[in-house]
Amino acid sequence: MKQQNLELIYVWDAYCGWCHGFSNSLKEFHENHPELPLSVLSGGLFFSQPIGNFPHIPEANQRIHQLTGAEFGPAYQSLLEDGTFVMDSQKAAIGFAALRSLAPDSTYYFASAMQQAFYHDGKSLSDPETYREIAAANGLDPEAVVAQMVDEAFKKEALSDFAKVRQLGVNGYPTLLLKKGKELIAFGGAAMNAEKLEARFESFTS
């Protein structure tokens, strides 16, 4: 399989704990293979739902930490204990689309920064200030990002991501797909580490 015919598609959700756990593994694999184009699509997991409606989350986070080493910061833990914080994947997808439009080659890093903001710093991914900070940290114009978040075109782009994910048949996050032409191969996700991703990749390219 020739590598120039390959690309990666990463399907994630900003409020998905397993995506947070998978983040470092994908980062390491992605940086080891800069020759592979990487597209990142937002999925829709939670829509205006209080985090307290999902009592399984603390136990799931413990398992994510055990299997991947991912950390969950004290500010996030406070949100979890309070239970009233509202998760809205659509608003997060709009913010992600706004960041992505200004630096398409950095999409994965924006996804990682968003999850860092939520899972470490307890910041809302519906709050424009969160995106101002991410934009500034990545050399983007913070006001341009915030302006795009209220532009109807970016709501449509977020909904387009959701539609693309459905077309791909993906219903769980994180999902990493390897694309060869029109062929899609389930490649990785959840607790897979970088070494397992590398071994799987070699099995397809050797």
Results as ranks from 00 to 15, higher is better:
E35H: 15
S39G: 08
S112D: 14
Y15R: 04
A113N: 13
I185M: 11
P34R: 15
L125F: 10
L102T: 05
I57Y: 09
D13H: 04
G95I: 03
Y173L: 05
D151V: 04
N193D: 13
A144Y: 01
L6Q: 05
G122A: 05
V146C: 08
G181C: 04
H20F: 15
G122H: 07
H33I: 02
E7I: 03
A113T: 03
G169T: 02
V86H: 08
N193L: 00
M114F: 03
A144W: 02
V165W: 09
A97P: 00
N61Q: 12
A135V: 14
H33Y: 08
I57R: 07
E59Q: 15
K156T: 01
F118W: 13
Q167P: 15
T205Y: 06
Y76L: 07
M1C: 07
L178S: 05
L197N: 11
M149T: 08
N32Q: 13
S126G: 14
L125T: 04
A194Q: 15
L140P: 02
S39I: 01
S25V: 05
F201T: 00
A190V: 12
P34S: 15
T107V: 09
Q116C: 00
D88Q: 03
T84L: 12
A93S: 07
R132G: 06
L26A: 05
V146I: 06
G73L: 04
F29Y: 07
S112I: 09
F162T: 11
Y108I: 09
A70W: 05
K164P: 14
R63E: 10
F96E: 03
A136W: 10
I51C: 10
D141K: 10
Y119L: 04
R166Q: 14
A163P: 01
N193M: 02
E143Q: 12
M87P: 00
F54T: 14
W12D: 10
F110C: 11
P37S: 03
S101W: 13
M1T: 08
L38Y: 09
A191L: 02
Q148S: 11
P128W: 04
F85P: 10
L178T: 01
E183W: 08
R166F: 12
N138T: 09
A75R: 13
K155F: 14
S48I: 06
K2V: 03
S89G: 08
F118S: 04
M87L: 09
D141S: 15
A190T: 11
N61G: 07
Q3H: 07
I94M: 12
